[in-house]
Each structure stands twice: as C-alpha cells, then as structure tokens.
Design a protein around this nucleic acid. Sequence first.
DNA 1: GTCTAAAGTTAATTATAGTTTACCTATGGC
DNA 2: GCCATAGGTAAACTATAATTAACTTTAGAC
Lengths: 105, 105
Amino acid sequence: MLVKQTLGRVVKSTNMPDLTKSFSPEQLAKAITAKRTGMKLTLVNVSAALSLSKPTLIKIEKGDTSVKLVNILKVMEYLGLSFSIVSDELTPNSNTTGVSDEEWY
Amino acid sequence: MLVKQTLGRVVKSTNMPDLTKSFSPEQLAKAITAKRTGMKLTLVNVSAALSLSKPTLIKIEKGDTSVKLVNILKVMEYLGLSFSIVSDELTPNSNTTGVSDEEWY
DNA sequence: GTCTAAAGTTAATTATAGTTTACCTATGGC
DNA sequence: GCCATAGGTAAACTATAATTAACTTTAGAC
C-alpha cells in the first residue's frame, strides 16, 4: 500500500495489523514491523540499541517462532508493544483475594 | 493459598493471576500453571501430549524467558490461553482498509 | 510410619538459536 | 548512469536451549 507523506514523497504504509483479531505469530511480526517503520527505525537502529543481531530481528519480523521469548520481548518493549494474556472460556477471575474459585477455566 | 473443595479435601488454589494487570513473564508463568492445575493436568500429561520435555515445561512455569516462543505457544494453545498484542499510545488503527493513517503510533 | 504420584533437579549429550562477516538485492536521490 | 541506505541472505562458528535419564523432594492418602 502506498501513502502520500508531507513532502509528496511516497512510502509504504506502516500497515499495522488489526490487533482485535486473534493472535498469531504473523500478526505479531507485522505489528513489530509496522511499529518499527512507523517510528522510522531501521533494523540496524534496533539491532544496535538492543545488542541483537540483524538476522535475529529479521527472523522475528518474519514470524519465525523458533526465537527465544526474551528477544521478542526486548524488541516489543523497545517499540512500545506488549502482550496481554487471554484465557478462553468463562470468567478468568480478577482474583482480588489471591484465591480462585476453582473451575473458572 | 488453601481452598476447601467439594468433599472437604484441601488443595492448593489454582491461583490464576490478574490478567488485567500489565504483562510480565511471571504473570504468564503463573497463568500457565494455574490453567494446567485447574484442568487437573500434570507436567507429564502436558509433556506427553505436546512432546515437550518436563525440564522445558518447568522452565516455562518458572517464567524463564530463555525458551523458544514456539514452545510457549504450544503450551498456551493446549491449555486454552492466548496472547493479544497491545500497542501503547493512541489509536492502534483497526485497519479495515489495510492502510494505516501513519503516525498512529 | 509407608507408599505413591507429582514436582523439581542434575549431568551429559544433542540440537539448534544466535552471532559475525560478508555479500546481494532493491530503491531513492543525485 | 552512480552512490548511499535499508532489507534480506548465506556460511562458519559459538553459545546455549532442549532432551534424556536418573535421582531427590514434597505432599497427600493410607
């Protein structure tokens, strides 16, 4: 997708995926790429900032799941992305007491 | 935490963490353990079902982030847990057109 | 107390993620 | 056309995650 910018220069859209859709590694990869490019950062920028190699960053942005969680989390935190955990089925228990009612899952 | 059950037997609570709190590896670990125990599954059950070794499962349930994403996702899917991706700052763009407005981040 | 089952640890080995360096495309500006 | 920059790939090497097997510990049932 092409988008017109301030000075008439044409660049690719950041193309952020729809984050309301259910999670997939591809969605995560797209969100990371979209955030990074939206912030005008290059792979080398991020690589240097996080001491992570470029090939690893590319694996992450390609949706390769054979990457250590810690490396994905580093990139996400740097870009201002985060996870939230969602438990299927009923009432995940907000757990103010520290105790679960059992069978909530 | 101790909880009284149907027949007066006392067991540990599943102790599901508060999923509305911001993500952390520890929260994920606790959610996985809570879900697994809530479903009355042992580590060996899960290990056998997913062809994943017990030491790896224990690392996951201890919040060790030096684990491959794919292995964490396997466990989560098996237990009925998932991620959603959260982008900080304004209006993550639901992107019905496939095009982002730029500067949404 | 014994017995059992599950959680957790340890050590040795294997598999593979990650790094480094170099190279190869695009693509845009000149 | 050339040049610079960013994305992407490949090969060799290093670091370390994952597996296997055996063992220890814990906790409940009896």
